[in-house]
Design a protein around this nucleic acid. Structure first.
Length: 499
RNA sequence: GACCGGGUAGCUCAGUGGUAGAGCAGCGCACUUUUAAUGCGCGGGCCGCGGGUUCGAUCCCCGCCCCGGUCACCA
């Protein structure tokens, strides 16, 4: 019998022993008065003498994460997932039945404890147990207490084990929850209406990406999991909801990496009577607020870097970023004009080893150079603005330059965490842009946008001047929790099926 | 998809072409304030899976599976 099988048998035997004692093996409820965390928070500063004077009688519960036995003196450490507290068990302080129950306990079991608080000789806050209640059995051996669980495959596939034994993991997801709460609080305080739009869409629009497909049986209709909520949210602004936001999942049928999970969470919002410049200011305020609420300040450590979310953030035009990077890599001064003409831009890209596909204009080439050579260097929050029109089918052109749109992406720690633009609200121009996308699609670009006639009809009813933005929640949480992989901030990241 | 690294006890990890190792966890004994408790003793392994080479493979070779990283694609 393997070590694991052996331990399972022993734990089952202990469960049987409980039953033989007449104790409920899976009791229906336990009325706890205090969480472990509440006890620790309320009493951790109190001295031995203060505790003796108060003789606080507690009733709490948790999972056993340590057991030390000295014959008639025994110690447990129980945890509510956030804090842990020690329990002192001595035979002459408990009813005989409770001590018999104690003898059946295994590392990982759930118990309820009643008793007064005191400090041991080594000054540890401890519950002197007067009652012990069995709550639930841990039949499988838990990872060991000292090294915890470090195998990332088990941490991702069996997140419950990770959370049970790695407090750092718990903290990451608590921070994630704070981030989402802070965003909601920030948006609703500014009169944004929180909405939910379809996750299953007949046309997967609002972004350039490959969708997942699904099917509705009764309607006999193929559907896509959404790649973005964008077109639905702007329909709401057409309807007069001037400020809307949605926090929800997007699904993109693309690669997996430290920065990409097939389903990921975005906060997307639209605001009438604003443009992309207004959103830069708004974004600075939002990120400062969220960083403060989630971490207590605006300075965070990410890997080797210290990142500041204090406003203002740096601003850099995409072409200037590409120009600087090209100059640095080629060892000569590259001029902006060279990036604005297809032939010279293509020559620079080729010299840099950046692939240029037929049909790519100067704008797309400049963007490729930026992505290959510049973006990973943007550690401090940086607004990269003025994107080429050809890669921005839903953004409004600059009044002074139709090849450039009023759009920015926010980069932090070398990757994109937000994307925003002044929304294209001219239905004729929007139709022309979709038609350009259809040509790309016809030439094999699976990520090109599809035609959405109803969206154009909505624009024909009139979208006021509006700016919109999407914020990648997972990536923001990565930066705020110093997590190197997106899988560290998603409770159940997608993994290959395993037998 | 390509390349690199990894998969050995429940967990964390050593290791070798010749009977498989440690610490923790587990079991037994001792111990009435311990802190990764300690001491003594014991049990626990398809060395990811399948082929091949070999007298003999956990180790060498080939294929496959899973995980991680880099690149490609993307946010």
């Amino acid at each position: 019998m393997s070590s694991q099988d052996e331990q399972i048998q022993q734990r089952k035997a202990n469960l049987d022993a409980l039953q033989a004692l007449g104790v409920a093996t899976y009791p229906n409820r336990f009325d706890r008065r205090d969480t472990v965390s509440a006890l620790v928070d309320a009493h951790s500063a109190k001295s031995h003498d203060e505790l003796e004077a108060e003789r606080h009688e507690s009733s709490t519960s948790g999972r056993i994460l340590a057991m030390r036995s000295f014959g008639k003196a025994n110690f447990l450490a129980i945890s509510d997932g956030r804090s842990r507290i020690q329990v002192y068990i001595r035979q002459d302080s408990l009813p005989a039945l409770d001590f018999d129950v104690f003898k059946t306990l295994d590392f990982g079991d759930w118990v309820g404890v009643e008793g007064r608080l005191f400090r041991t000789k080594t000054n540890e806050l401890t519950i002197w147990a007067s009652r012990l209640h069995f709550l639930a059995k841990c039949l499988l051996p838990l990872p060991e207490k000292f090294h915890g669980l470090t195998d990332v495959e088990i941490r991702y596939r069996q997140r419950y084990l990770d959370l049970a034994v790695n407090p750092e993991s718990r903290r990451v997801f608590e921070t994630r929850s704070k981030v989402v709460s802070a965003i909601r609080e920030f948006m609703t305080a500014r009169q944004y209406l929180e909405v939910e739009t379809p996750m299953m869409q007949p046309i997967a629009g609002g972004a350039l990406a490959r969708p997942f497909t699904t099917h509705h049986n009764t309607l006999d209709m193929d559907l896509y999991l959404r790649i973005a909520p964008e077109l639905y949210l702007k329909r709401l602004t057409v309807g007069g909801l001037e400020r809307v936001f949605e926090i929800n999942r997007n699904f993109r049928n693309e690669g997996i990496s430290t920065q990409h999970n097939p389903e990921f969470t975005m906060m997307e919002f639209y605001q009438a009577y604003s443009d992309y410049q207004d959103l830069m200011i708004f974004t600075e305020e939002l990120f400062s607020h969220v960083a403060h609420k989630a971490t207590g300040g605006t300075e965070v450590i990410y890997g080797e870097q210290q990142i500041s979310f204090a406003a203002p953030f740096a601003r850099l035009s995409l072409r200037e970023g590409a120009r600087e990077a090209a100059s640095r890599a080629l060892g000569r001064e590259v001029h902006l004009d060279e990036l604005k003409v297809g032939d010279s831009a293509a020559a620079i890209a080729t010299a840099l080893g950046v692939e240029v596909l037929p049909g790519h204009g100067a704008g797309k080439i400049a963007a490729s150079i930026f992505e290959a050579r510049c973006e990973h260097r943007l550690i401090q929050p940086t607004f990269v603005y003025d994107f080429p029109t050809e890669i921005s089918p839903l953004s409004k052109q600059r009044a002074d330059d139709p090849d450039t749109v009023e759009r920015f992406e926010l980069y932090v720690a070398g990757f994109e965490v937000a994307n925003a633009f002044s929304e294209l609200n001219d239905p004729v121009e929007q139709r022309r842009r979709f038609e350009d996308q259809l040509k790309d699609r016809a030439s094999g670009d699976l990520e090109a946008h599809q035609m959405d006639e109803d969206y154009i009809r909505a624009l024909e009813y009139g979208l006021p001047p509006t700016a919109g933005e999407g914020v990648g929640i997972d990536r923001l949480v990565m930066v705020l929790t110093n997590s190197p992989s997106i899988r560290d901030v998603i409770l159940f990241p997608l993994m290959r099926k395993r037998d």
